[in-house]
Amino acid sequence: MEHYHMNLNLKVWRQKNCKTKGEFKLYRVENISSEMSFLEMFDVLNEQLIRDGDDPITFDHDCREGICGACSMYINGKPHGPWQANTTCQLHMRAFKDGDTVVVEPWRADAFPVIKDLMVDRSAFDRIIQAGGYISVNTGNAVDGNSLPIPKDDADASFAAAMCIGCGACVAACKNSSAMLFLSAKVSHLALLPQGNPERKSRVMNMVAQMDKEGFGACTNTGACEATCPKEISLSNIARLNQEYLMAGLTEK
């Protein structure tokens, strides 16, 4: 892999807090290595801003290995930037070339108010989980793990849905700011396992009700969420969610 260096123009959303109006500001970074991650490029910029006496740019990030779901930048019109199946922290600068202009915004959704700059409040996701995204089993109640064989295909499908990192890129990508991919991943993860069966109906009803309450939009099946999801959560989960919801609604006591 050839390494190279580049100069970039950055257009970054700055907003002091949720009460003030934000605006784009222009910055220039020089001599950026193609081996850096996107967030390391932001580290360089922030060090530069601090030295110049400016306010550094605030953004969420933690594990920097694509699994915690904290990082959340809308880069050149795409959540997490140009690479497929990728998070912002795993985007590397070889995705860009010398002289590029890069536009960086926060996730934009009513349910994700901006805290500062590129950092948003995603606690709505926690509240959706609180509404039913679990199996009610207290510690100590479990039987032997092998007492309930689960067909490998079911376990694998459940795992594929459970890989969701809760970053919210699906919401940011959706023109309606719908949280259906996030919600459907959790409903699928639990509905595909026999352990999830007893609460199957109440779970889907309560979680959907909470999602609506949080102000997420409706799903119109454009598939933008699936296309942008860093963990490639499948749109078929939304079909499963709709089926679960319909079944639960029709058979509600």
Partner: peptide
């Protein structure tokens, strides 16, 4: 405990 919670371990 984890299996009961729905942790999808490899099978």
């Amino acid at each position: 405990q984890c299996v009961a919670q729905g942790v999808p371990f490899a099978r």
